[in-house]
């Protein structure tokens, strides 16, 4: 299929390019910023230290929203303790993906440091696989009703984990065939799915500010239905701008 897959680096121009770079900078900043919280979460949970994300949320919203009934902190202590090993692997590996993933899309880095790009790509694919397998192991051992927000969210997480693994596999097989365009397509899709983690937390904050009667669990289930498509839009539009030149091939 590679022969019919013409690489058309449809470079955007002017304001469009500036807008894309600005949005990418915001995206990368959010990913790296949240990766610190993700890395800290279960290490602090395991060592009974203050969890940075919870305190950050409490500072922005309220102690009640961050630690009260319906919060992750209050509702998930027991299931998290039971599945701590899987969750440690899941979040620390996920944090690695968030920290290095956005920079894999920098054409400057890819062109100047191709060896770094390949090495970081291998780390990303290994991390994302370990993270999702650990997530699935946690979901397997935890009754669906005990997952945060209950069975609907648990099934949503199953779906997310499988989609991440599938798209990572498609991205890997594409680059093994030197099919750069398809590789970029599936990596954009994959990282957009990973981005659902920080985006979910941003939505929790937005719900906390705009709908004060909601607790975290209610906000979580309210966001759940459209979270992934919301994140995927960004990655899919990025791919379209990179590989959708003005003139169609004939």
């Amino acid at each position: 299929m590679a022969s019919v897959f013409e690489v058309r680096q449809g470079r955007s121009v002017g304001g469009e390019r500036v807008a894309v770079r600005l949005l990418w900078a915001v995206f990368a900043g959010l990913c790296v910023f949240y990766s610190v919280f993700a890395f800290n979460y279960f290490i602090s949970f395991a060592t009974e230290q203050p969890i940075w994300w919870n305190h950050f949320m409490a500072a922005l919203l309220s102690e009640q929203y961050a630690f009260g009934p319906g919060s992750v902190h209050a509702d998930q202590a027991a299931p998290y303790s039971a599945g701590l090993l899987f969750l440690l692997v899941h979040t620390t590996m996920g944090a690695v993906c968030l920290a290095i993933g956005p920079f894999q899309f920098s054409s400057r880095i890819r062109q100047r440091y191709p060896a770094y790009h390949r090495a970081a790509g291998k780390v990303y694919l290994t991390s994302v696989t370990l993270s999702m397998v650990a997530g699935l192991a946690y979901l397997s051992q935890t009754p669906a009703a005990d997952v945060f927000s209950g069975a609907p969210f648990a099934i949503g997480l199953w779906g997310l984990d499988f989609m991440v693994l599938l798209t990572a596999y498609l991205a890997y097989t594409a680059i093994r065939k030197r099919d750069v365009v398809r590789h970029q397509a599936w990596m954009a899709f994959n990282l957009s799915l990973i981005f659902a983690t920080p985006m979910l937390r941003i939505f929790w904050l937005v719900f906390g500010w705009t709908l004060p009667s909601f607790n975290q669990a209610e906000a979580n289930i309210g966001v759940m239905t459209y979270l992934l498509p919301f994140c995927l839009l960004g990655g899919m539009i990025w791919f379209s701008l990179q590989h959708g030149g003005r003139k169609a091939a004939s």
């Binding site: 779906g159 992934l228 091939a249 004939s250």
Partner: peptide, 27 residues
């Protein structure tokens, strides 16, 4: 809630698969 969550993301996955894997970048 479960069904709309899975369908919403799943339809994007299928449509992306059709455009990337089946149709490619050629018209």
């Amino acid at each position: 809630s479960t069904s709309v969550t899975l369908a919403f993301a799943g339809h994007f996955l299928v449509s992306f698969y059709v455009t990337v894997q089946i149709l490619g970048r050629r018209l």
